[in-house]
Design a protein around this nucleic acid. Structure first.
Lengths: 404, 404
DNA sequence: TCTATTCGTCATGGCAGAAAACAAATTAGT
DNA sequence: ACTAATTTGTTTTCTGCCATGACGAATAGA
């Protein structure tokens, strides 16, 4: 009998765990609701002022919170001292490898982007070792810049445009099983990482994009379907504010949802998958654009902007196919929002109308808010931001991890 | 920023909450792993023997656990005293209303069915008040029988074959918004319930069937898609051992996943929904079986058993449609198991082969285990069992709810 | 200046689990 | 038969955490 425990931690509840949870509660309250006094926090979370004081002392000592000057606020009584997240404390480093660029970014505890770097690089045709060496250099330089701002990197996450090998999430031994756009197969970044730098944790790019949308995209819903498309089409499912990976880690394979059950054969072996209608290769072909070295999405956007009729038609058809596949997703998962992110967010202008029309036509068994479908506010920046934010979120949700 | 807290309880962690959690931990450990001594429990959960002793004393006092006699077990050292769930303690009462029957059942803390009743009744053509009066009588008589067995009903749950109105789950004010098979619209069972009996909590029949499969169907996976079909087709999504209802409570609408995007118009307004191919009405029509008063699923099973060719073909076609819709579900949700439950589990013999074939053909982008698809082991008994089990699960997961 | 009010801290107490010692019940060995 | 070893369950002492209530500090209003 798989007894579903109340939540999370499987171990026994201990006083240390209680302290831990309350530290997280105080820190995330300050993170969520701007500067607050101790008394404010106590009122919100249901602890006494004394308990909050003790917790805040610990967080101040660890450099996670900073105390502002006391300032009269117009109300009667002794004014409180404002507590805010320390913007000279721990930070998260995000890294990204694309076919034609490298990225590094640092986000502070308050969620502000403090270092942002994105440099062109020809990665597809170079050996992975060289690419990783360049990436490590970018990481080192971003770390230096962050240190100059008073920040301390507490975690490094690399956004990977591909499938990860098995292994505990967070373990440095995890490898990139397959990243077609990079030409990587079985590459283990940790092995080619310089000794001085902490090796990055690997996470799928699309997943990070979804989390970024949730954390810094101004998304209010905590259950959403985040579509990331380029050559392959994937959807990250966020459920209750957490990434849902499925029983075996394969959740969100939107690209292989059947759209026309007797359609053309897909590379996966099935017939009529969404990817055959809306994948970059299929759309390029339908738009009669010859293969070039250019970024396929940029090529499509250029032609569409120029009014190229076959491209416009191809994008409309792709949008319709998206609509059919997303109808399945909406009917099954019932998300509060469907976000078109990744590279395709740059095609939103042409894709969204057909997607919205199909969804409105097909999602009828329950109320469907047309505004629930929208393009990502972060676009291509999502994965890199998400990679840096991941470390921050972990600290906010469990600050004690930093010192024990 | 929707800060995803570690889990569940939003309030601060207190010593009482710690106690509460450890009580649940001890109880669910005993529930999950048969009779155990205090020392055994301590070893498993990571508490000291002293702490477990104190927790067990409380659970014994509350009548949730019972202590067996001490019996030599062949190993060296003082033998432990076996702790088991009390089968003369708290119990859950499940109720069910179908078009042609009423059901009541009592499950004890150990998960054993102690009272089981299912009586034919013509409910479709009678006013809801009369049906509810009969149901209340059945509930009262089942309660009496349970009391004779030394059981104490601690919760009553009614399985409803339809859509519930809004309201806090568990609130007695919730109404049945729409139950087509019963002809109920806006019926509030609590209003027509006798004063002496505790009013039942309402829950959707399909959801309860899925939970029953999880808890007493021998299901080892904790992430599964449970298909419940009859006139309408729904899927309950169980994720991490918990029922997933979606952002607005509409998750699992498998019946309206598009199968052939340009297919016949569905009652929902869309085209080519699964229900148009695999709903009872559609299959009856395709099998050329004239509408009768009989249970449609039983009628189909009868004809199929008799080798009626149009019925066999219709069921095969329905299975193929199921396979297409379930491909979408598997690719999106990545469940560890797909279970065909509800009334259609009686058609599994004819539906499953086509479903399995389509899934094997279409789920190609990831490994797919053919054994992950199976018929429910509980069949039509699922919802009623789940209704009774729901109360038991709640007690096991938080025993303190009984006394404070 | 004095009072009411609110904030942060301090001292005390209660509660829950950890640690260690102890009594009880059994097996293994001589 | 008797002792040693081992395991169980309880008792006692200790530590850590939060609640309670009291106190000084800082502000607005009279």
């Amino acid at each position: 009998m798989p007894t579903a425990l109340p939540a999370g931690s499987s171990g026994p509840a201990s006083q240390q765990g209680m302290r831990r949870q309350n530290l997280a509660l105080v820190l995330s309250t300050v993170a969520g609701s701007g500067p607050l006094s101790r008394a404010d926090v106590a009122g919100r979370v249901g602890l006494t002022r004394a308990a909050v004081s003790s917790l805040v002392d610990e967080l101040l000592g660890a450099g996670l919170l900073v105390e502002g000057e006391t300032a009269p606020n117009g109300r009667v009584g002794r004014p409180g001292r404002a507590l805010s997240l320390n913007d000279r404390g721990p930070a998260g480093l995000g890294l990204e490898v694309g076919p034609a660029h490298l990225g590094a970014c640092v986000v502070d505890l308050a969620g502000q982007t403090r270092v942002w770097r994105r440099v062109p690089a020809i990665n597809r045709s170079r050996p992975a070792e060289q690419v990783l060496a360049d990436l490590a250099e970018a990481a080192a330089s971003a770390t230096e810049e962050a240190q100059a701002l008073g920040l301390r990197i507490e975690g490094t996450v690399l956004a990977v445009p591909g499938v990860l090998g098995p292994g505990a999430p967070g373990a440095a031994s995890v490898s990139v099983e397959h990243a077609p756009n990079l030409g990587w197969h079985g590459v283990s970044p940790a092995r080619h990482w310089p000794a001085g730098l902490p090796a990055p944790e690997l996470e799928n790019e699309a997943n990070l994009g979804a989390l970024a949308e949730l954390w810094s995209g101004g998304e209010s819903a905590d259950t959403l379907v985040h579509v990331s498309a380029e050559t392959g089409i994937g959807a990250a499912l966020v459920i209750g504010g957490h990434l849902f990976r499925g029983a075996a880690g394969y959740a969100g394979e939107l690209g292989h949802v059947p759209v026309h059950s007797d359609g053309p054969r897909c590379s996966c072996g099935a017939h009529g998958c969404l990817e055959q209608y809306a994948g970059a290769r299929a759309v390029l072909h339908a738009a009669r654009i010859a293969g070039s070295d250019q970024d396929p999405v940029a090529a499509l956007a250029d032609r569409a902007r120029a009014g190229h009729a076959p491209t416009l038609a191809a994008l409309r058809r792709a949008g319709e196919a998206f609509g059919i596949a997303l109808t399945a997703a909406v009917n099954l998962v019932d998300p509060a929002a469907v976000v078109l992110g990744g590279a395709y967010s740059e095609l939103a202008e042409w894709l969204l109308p057909a997607m919205a029309a199909e969804l409105a036509l097909r999602v009828r068994v329950r109320p469907w808010d047309p505004d629930a479908l929208r393009a990502s506010r972060l676009g291509r920046r999502g994965p890199l931001l998400g990679a840096a934010h991941l470390t921050i979120q972990r600290i906010v949700n469990d600050p004690a991890r930093l010192w024990d």
